[in-house]
């Protein structure tokens, strides 16, 4: 009986968590593309104007970023200005939660058929590398190790801390700017 009452709240909390994580990740993708050269080099190979979406099927939370050129991303929020070019789609909110709560690595989620790629697979591979790089910066090493296939051996604490601080600052600024009327 108690479980029946708690379950809808748990589902709602899970959806809210995924929604918030997408908002953070979208802004963080923009931020990391402004501070990290490796991410910029990865992104430069993407066509300018490419719209990338990460979403939960069928009409769940989503994040949309655009490659605006020279390796920089722009976060568009939940709505795209035109049809997206590349979409990574979680089949269910539960699968998105597994990945975004770092219980399952992105690569494992692909291997476990939790997500689909609609668009050029080579761009999806590149975006996965960008997401991995982002996670290694913004997550504590212990958690980042659960999120990525292999934690980079050449990422040392000072670089990680400085980059993470710059990313978080940019994410916070972006949140304030977009929330302000």
């Amino acid at each position: 009986m108690l479980l029946k009452r708690i379950q809808p709240m748990a589902f709602q909390a899970r959806r809210l968590y995924v929604d918030i994580m997408f908002q953070v990740m979208g802004r963080a993708l923009q931020a990391v593309s402004e501070v990290d050269e490796t991410v910029q080099n990865e992104a430069r190979a993407l066509p300018q104007g490419l719209l990338f979406e990460m979403m939960v099927m069928p009409e769940g939370p989503r994040l949309i970023v655009e490659h605006i050129g020279d390796g920089h991303f722009h976060y568009h929020g939940q709505s795209a200005p035109r049809p997206v070019d590349l979409s990574i789609q979680f089949k269910h909110i539960a699968h998105a939660f597994l990945v975004l709560s770092f219980q399952e690595k992105t690569s494992e989620a692909f291997a476990n058929d939790r997500m689909l790629v609609d668009g050029d697979v080579s761009y999806a591979v590149r975006m996965t590398r960008v997401l991995n790089r982002l996670e290694t910066f913004i997550l504590p090493k212990l958690i980042a190790k659960r999120a990525v296939k292999e934690y980079p051996a050449n990422l040392h604490l000072p670089e990680k801390l400085i980059s993470a601080a710059r990313i978080y600052l940019k994410v916070a600024t972006n949140f304030v700017e977009t929330v302000r009327p």
């Binding site: 190979a45 690569s107 692909f110 291997a111 790629v117 697979v121 080579s122 999806a124 591979v125 590149r126 996965t128 990525v148 296939k149 292999e150």
Partner: peptide, 13 residues
Amino acid sequence: ALDDGSIMFNPKE
């Protein structure tokens, strides 16, 4: 090779 879809499923990064 780094942009090939199958690299995603390789057990090692």
